[in-house]
């Protein structure tokens, strides 16, 4: 059982939900990455997504686009992130999932990439521009080294497709809760809640809600219908403003004592 499955098992045993923050690797300097991971772990993160900056992030809204740009401007590369994560792994014990567009992986070399992230202690990989139709490009390489490919389903995925996608994975299912790109939204409509219920019924693996989640009200709205939430832009923003107390209070929303289940 790898670290991701293990951590969801523990959460389930404790009747808790997952809080997964996303940070952009290299935003604020690559040398701050380990410290940020430790901070998030301390504040109760169940798992952390580390973004790899890309020049053309078509699935991302302005906040993550800007964070990626800042990371690229200070010289962040996929290679650098992997090297830093190798060091981080010695002190961070929760699962780490890399979120990267496909081209940096392709340029790195697919099998070398798989080998290197496995050696760095990365547990999973999310590739927003890799639908299941194209995943044979690297699915076998990741499987060989025991790194989970985390797949996404969206409001536009038909039922049969959700079934097929969720059956392929072992880690968790990334359920996109907006019709659109990443970034903060004020509220969700009933359609999103119904969608989440539908996905939860179908999926044999944990269902995590992500995209557009930025406040406690939204989290409370969604959490009864999923196994946890992924928060990106809001976390990126809090780190960028260096607002650590804001981060701590925001992340306490799913702490056991506040857990609404």
């Amino acid at each position: 059982m790898n670290r991701i499955e293990q951590s969801f098992k523990v959460l389930k045993d404790q009747d808790r939900k997952a809080f997964i923050p996303y940070i952009m690797g290299g935003d604020g300097g690559l040398n701050n990455l380990t410290e940020r991971l430790l901070t998030l772990e301390k504040f109760g993160a169940s798992l952390i997504e580390v973004g790899v900056p890309f020049s053309d992030p078509v699935a991302d809204g302005p906040t993550i686009q800007q964070a990626g740009l800042r990371a690229l401007q200070n010289g962040t590369t996929l290679r650098g992130i992997i090297a830093e994560l190798t060091k981080a792994r010695e002190v961070v014990s929760i699962p780490i999932v890399l979120m990267t567009y496909l081209n940096p992986i392709y340029a790195y070399g697919i099998s070398t990439f798989a080998q290197d992230i496995a050696n760095a202690g990365v547990d999973g990989c999310i590739i927003p521009d890799l639908p299941i139709e194209e995943e044979e490009l690297l699915a076998a390489e990741l499987e060989d080294v025991g790194v989970e490919l985390i797949r996404l389903v969206t409001l536009t995925s038909p039922k049969d497709r959700i079934k097929e996608i969720s059956n392929r994975g072992k880690g968790f299912l990334y359920t996109v809760t907006v019709k659109g790109i990443t970034g903060t939204r004020n509220e969700f409509d009933q359609e999103v809640v119904d969608f989440l219920k539908r996905v939860k019924d179908i999926s044999p693996i944990p269902v995590l809600a992500g995209f557009g989640i930025s406040n406690e009200k939204q989290i409370n709205e969604l959490i009864p219908h999923c196994d946890g939430v992924i928060v990106g832009s809001k976390i990126v923003d809090l780190f960028h403003k260096n607002d650590l107390s804001g981060l701590e209070s925001f992340m306490s929303v799913l702490k056991p004592e506040k857990n609404i289940i």
Binding site: V58, A59, L102, P128, D129, L130, P131, E133, E134, R151, L152, V153, T154, L155, T156, S157, P158, R161, I165, V176, K179, G180
Partner: peptide, 20 residues
Amino acid sequence: EKGQFGIYGGRFVPETLMKA
């Protein structure tokens, strides 16, 4: 059928667009 010309082409888009 997959839209490939040799190794080139394909459908590398976010899941949201796959249905369309």
